[in-house]
Design a protein around this nucleic acid. Structure first.
Lengths: 335, 335
DNA sequence: GTTAGCACTCAACATGCCTAAGTGCTAACA
DNA sequence: TGTTAGCACTTAGGCATGTTGAGTGCTAAC
């Protein structure tokens, strides 16, 4: 049996199954795809594919469906990323122009991506490792409560309320603001933990306690802007595509709600040279996502965009959309 | 037939149905609730209740289930809010203490509420009508791009990137910052639209163009802090409770994703003197929520907290949880 | 290596039957 | 007049049975 045809059969099975959601049999296969051989031959091929664990039969006299391994092979060796349609291309252009807030951009990006793919779209906030401190602000909210605001040159703004041990005067706060600003403006956010202690040390003794608190706050902020939140959209698509097995939707929603899970998921995915990385079904670390696949890629300086959907998804198209959106995003954010 | 017993029967039906998820018949009713009459009598009562549109039978020989109208009557006239268990009370205490960021608090609130009720919890950002301007910051991101930050005394921070028509100098920006700050610090956010034009008018002519842009940005920010975003958690609960009709989950997820829909929904709900307002099934303006109920109440200075779940829900307990959480929230945020 | 043919398997659908739960009604009752 | 017992009637759901069609695996011929 010829190796190329074997792959061709697998491709046909994957495509048909993704399209019809039903196990696909040998006869239907020869009808829909002009493979030039008879169904009996295909049956032989399918037997081999099954032996290799690439496809499986739900029960004796049913057609076959791809296994996780089958999808994997399909993605790795068979499929080629489909070019986007002109309309889709246009949608990306129009929806992402008008440079606005970072929040806005990400929001619009996930919406777009979820519409494009009919899946749940996820985007990680950009890494701000290289971000520089642009501005620092301390605001007295209550006698012992200070709001610390850290603004990076990327336009990202972090905020945090800290409790000072004792009453704080506005003058002290202003003095410290100037002092901190002078010392750390222009510094990389990532370097703050190393820089801040010396700033505190240089403060006059009577301000040092407060300075310590403030430094803590700032450091926490530089952490949290690295802690990387995610934005997501299109959860309703889950209900649409999984209309038959509603069982699995619960765990998936749970996973989606746990930002930590999603973040780990995204970061764990290496960066594929071909542009997009795919994690299929049980390859996936989290149990609730055993029937889901993630298609993601990096953008800008390393953060991830991607989608999550059922293993039975149209990989070529999805991968194309993810890649296109990521490229666009990189361009806009000047990654 | 006695009016009180009729209500008692309705109550029993609602309670049993909520508990068992199955149509409840006359016989089961007399067994589980000691009503002191026979099933035949109950049958007569149920016939009347059905005539009045308070309950309905899915098919001829099945028990009855409450209609929207039935739930309505139940909520309005029959049920009394159940007191929370000690454990729940404790959970509220412990989870909401540690005064932190506004964001943090709201985040924790929805999580708590969704766990308490096993429903989707939603909280609206607090109204900031009474909030005062605490601080204003302009940061030059690019030659023609300025980040405008508006900090309120409530600890809420708004940010927005604006495009200036022409290049901006840092000096001009600083000058304007001082000017704006001097004029609007301490002003109510809600009054900014009235105050800002005069500030612009008083600027030296060469700065007026930029000032105009900045004023626009500030005004937009004061709007958007009123525009009221929402935070939500517990969408996975939808899958759990609707395990039988997965059909309806799609539209609900859609509605939840549209912040606008949820915001309208919440604002449209009047404030019930009894503490919590309930909107049941089709009473609900949005079609996708025809099988859902919303239980909400105001907190602080008028924003809403609440939950969304299937019409078949445990109203007394849910209402208690929502009310308790709202009270706590008011206390923490000093509403 | 490919194909035709055939026996075999099994989910899905249909049919008919039975049961349990539940109703509505009528007539007796307090 | 409100309550009750009794009974005929309805129907979803479970079960056993039969039928159909898609699909497989195998063998023998090409």
């Amino acid at each position: 049996m010829s190796e190329p045809r074997k792959l061709e059969v697998l491709r046909a099975i994957v495509e048909d199954y993704v399209h019809s959601r039903e196990p696909v049999g040998s006869k239907a296969l020869v009808e829909r795809h002009h493979l030039g051989v008879s169904s009996a031959t295909i049956r032989n091929d399918m037997a081999v594919l099954e032996e290799e664990g690439l496809i499986a039969a739900p029960h004796t006299s049913a057609g076959r469906i791809p296994t996780d391994k089958g999808y994997r092979l399909f993605v790795d060796r068979i499929s080629q990323v489909k070019p986007l349609s002109a309309a889709e291309r246009r949608a990306i252009h129009s929806l992402l122009e008008g440079p606005d807030d970072l929040d806005d951009i990400l929001e619009r990006t996930v919406r777009l991506l979820s519409q494009l793919t009919n899946q749940v779209a996820v985007v990680q906030y950009p890494h701000s490792n290289r971000a520089l401190v642009r501005h620092v602000e301390f605001v007295l909210l209550a006698p012992k409560q200070v709001l610390v605001v850290l603004i990076a040159d990327t336009g990202s703004v972090g905020q945090k309320v800290i409790e000072a041990g004792s009453d704080v005067s506005n003058e002290a706060l202003m003095a410290l603001r100037t002092r901190f600003l002078g010392s750390i403006a222009g510094t990389q956010l990532a370097l703050l933990p190393q820089v801040l202690p010396s700033v505190v040390a240089l403060c006059p003794p009577d301000l040092r306690g407060l300075a310590q608190h403030l430094a803590h706050g700032l450091q926490a902020l530089s952490d949290t802007s690295r802690e990387e939140r995610i934005v997501m959209a299109g959860t309703a698509n889950l209900a649409r595509s999984n209309v038959d097995f509603p069982l699995s939707i619960g765990p998936v929603l749970e996973a989606l709600e746990e930002q930590v899970v999603m973040l780990r998921l995204l970061s764990d995915m290496g960066d594929d040279p071909r542009g997009v990385t795919v994690s299929i079904g049980r390859e996936n670390p989290y149990d609730g996502l055993a029937e889901a696949s993630v298609v993601a890629t990096g953008y800008g300086s390393g953060a991830k965009v991607g989608i999550l959907g059922p293993t039975r998804m149209d990989y070529p198209t999805t991968m194309a959309a993810v890649r296109a959106v990521a490229r666009y995003l990189s361009r806009i954010l000047g990654g």
